[in-house]
Write a protein that binds this DNA or RNA. Structure first.
Lengths: 205, 205
DNA sequence: ATAATTGTTGACTAATTAGTCAACTTAGAT
DNA sequence: ATCTAAGTTGACTAATTAGTCAACAATTAT
């Protein structure tokens, strides 16, 4: 009953785009409304504030990416292949975004996370940390499987995953700062070096 | 001749603190003026805009850090010791800042760089990239020296330095997001794994 | 002393911002 | 048909923002 609308969804899409393309702090409610084609009164009908919208926007974004990551990091995929697939997926995704927005945007969780982490309101920071932790676990599991298969030198998969995750974060941020997709080209070789992959492909000396 | 003043320096200090503690986008000229104890008229006497002030502020910051980095990465220091010293210095520096500001702040170049990299005005982004590139070169030289000494496996020191640099970036951002200094504890072991250090300390199996 | 230079101030404008609200509109249930 | 719940709108306030400017204050060279 009552009127139906997709304004809520339009707002969620708009905030994600604006925050990612620009920054959280400089994205205004007026901008969000304009991009979504929604008047401010309607904004406040659905959400109490920018941070509330950003929270559900982040959540929504994560829900959309999750299936793809589940597929890439499926236990049915050989451990090292997961990293190959992930690096490949990440590159292609960034390339698509780059074409769409005109510049490399990296990972919104990292850039926005760094931006909002010192705010008094910790809700957005917590949500971002939560999603980042989910992502790190994909790496940890894959490393553990690789270690069990004797493919890598990683006696402490959790510690190793944190190192690898920091590396991926750094790559994404670097690519954004330099506005250069080629930064990602190092990803798989960097992964292999970090993991201590025993024999890259062929036999070594 | 004429009146003397340190208002310019106070403004430069204030902008660095505010941007680092918060973010570039949400730091207002009014806030900067208040923190510096300077009236807005004086601000515009010295600087044309926030970005001009931030530019000289970043430059100033770099000038202050440079001597310490020159010492740490001095060619007189054994290559691997440089990384140890750097990781140690970075940790102690972050701990000091953390105590001072109440939270882990990471590296302003990374967080602000990620924030401003999509702005139309590219001056701040360029300045940050320039300083980051200086920092990366410390790593490249140290890696090259380590390779020459047969201490690591790094046939392409430039590529390796980019990987290591991304890792450090990631660590700093992670520490800020999680507000946790312990993130840096992994730094030296991560460095060694990335560099492919041949024998950490003692002999291996 | 005083003139020239350098820096300071507070009051000002115009634009943008977050947030409110009563009146209005649309859709489905009865 | 009409009642009710769900959504929309534009006009509003109050606060904050960037940026300007003429008058004022302090320092130093002459």
């Amino acid at each position: 009953m009552g009127r139906v609308s997709d304004a809520r969804e339009r707002l969620m899409k708009a905030v994600r785009e604006l925050i990612w393309k620009g920054s959280y702090g400089t994205t205004t409610i007026d901008q969000i409304c304009e991009k979504a084609g929604v008047k401010k009164g309607s904004f406040y009908y659905f959400f109490d504030s920018k941070v509330e919208l950003a929270l559900v926007g982040m959540e929504e974004d994560w829900s959309q990416h999750r299936p793809e990551l589940d597929a890439i990091f499926s236990p049915t995929v050989p451990p090292l292949d997961r990293f190959e697939k992930y690096c490949d997926y990440f590159y292609r995704f960034q390339a698509k975004i780059c074409q769409q927005y005109g510049c490399v945007l990296g990972c919104p969780l990292f850039s926005v996370g760094a931006e909002v982490s010192t705010q008094e309101d910790h809700r957005l920071q917590q949500k971002i940390q939560e999603i980042l932790e989910y992502k790190r676990r994909y790496l940890e599991t894959a490393i553990r499987d690789a270690q069990a298969a004797g493919l890598v030198t990683a006696p402490d998969p959790a510690a190793k995953s944190r190192i690898l995750f920091a590396y991926y974060q750094g790559l994404a941020t670097q690519a954004r700062i330099q506005n250069n997709l080629n930064v990602f080209k190092d990803a798989i070789s960097g992964t292999y070096e970090l993991l201590g992959v025993k024999k890259p492909q062929a036999a070594a000396a």
